[in-house]
Design a protein around this nucleic acid. Structure first.
Length: 226
DNA sequence: AATTGATCATTA
DNA sequence: TAATGATCAATT
């Protein structure tokens, strides 16, 4: 078990030191067994990278490296270096949302600085053979933050107005709200349009691949088309 | 081929 | 139950 990094430079060095290795090599180094597939261990790659980099394994609603203000995100990429999945950010709040602004939101804090680690994610590549890519530290530009804020405000309006049942994944240009639960029968408390408590499926904020593709492309030159 | 809604494991 | 880590797979 390695200790948490004490600086951004240390974290980035560690991230560079695992770039190029396969998941099986990293698993072995950490005394873990690489699964055949991720069907029943969807977060396995993320957990492996946490161990490699010294993140405190936990489910606290905070950045992974709170001491240095950085969130860790693994992102599955195609052969062309484009994201294969949307990126989970955090659970959406359904209660105590009065007075909540983008500026003091949990999601803004999480996205204020992110260490992205691309990992090969094509399904035809066995998990054990997938390579970890070059890491990058990202902070939203003024434009990116403005775009996220617009989406966040649009999505939060449903919640504040008690229109949770009208939410679907099509809202939001870069940020979307989708289910985040063990199954579709799981329920959490929200408020209806007359202010009455209701039970509904928990949702979370996800970054669309279009948005994360742009982040990655700022750092790597990608071939044209597809 | 891209996207949406559904789902899995673990911890506290 | 709610939070973390996400990907799966049916549908469009």
């Amino acid at each position: 078990m390695i200790s948490p990094p004490t600086s951004e430079a240390e974290l980035l060095n560690r991230a560079y030191s695992i770039a190029g290795f396969t998941l099986n090599e990293l698993a072995t180094q950490n005394n873990l067994i690489c699964p055949q597939d991720l069907c029943r261990e969807k977060g396995w790659v993320g957990m492996l990278l946490e161990r490699c980099l010294g993140a405190i394994a936990g489910n606290k609603p905070e950045q992974d490296f709170q001491n240095i203000g950085i969130e860790l995100k693994s992102i599955p990429i195609s052969y062309m270096g484009k994201p294969l999945e949307t990126t989970f950010v955090c659970i959406a709040p359904f209660i105590k949302v009065q007075g909540l602004t983008w500026e003091n939101s949990h999601i803004r804090n999480k996205l204020s600085k992110v260490l992205w680690i691309p990992v090969e994610g094509e399904r035809e590549i066995p998990i054990r053979d997938r390579h970890v890519g070059t890491p990058l530290i990202w902070q939203p530009s003024a434009e990116e933050e403005a775009q996220l804020k617009v989406d966040w405000e649009e999505l939060m309006e449903f919640i504040v107005l008690g229109k949770v049942h009208k939410i679907n994944a099509r809202h939001g240009e870069y940020l979307q709200l989708r289910p985040k639960a063990a199954n579709s029968k799981e329920l959490t408390i929200a408020y209806g349009d007359r202010g009455q408590p209701i039970k509904t499926l928990p949702r979370a904020f996800y970054l669309r691949t279009q948005f994360t593709a742009r982040i990655l492309s700022h750092y790597f030159t990608l071939p044209e088309n597809k």
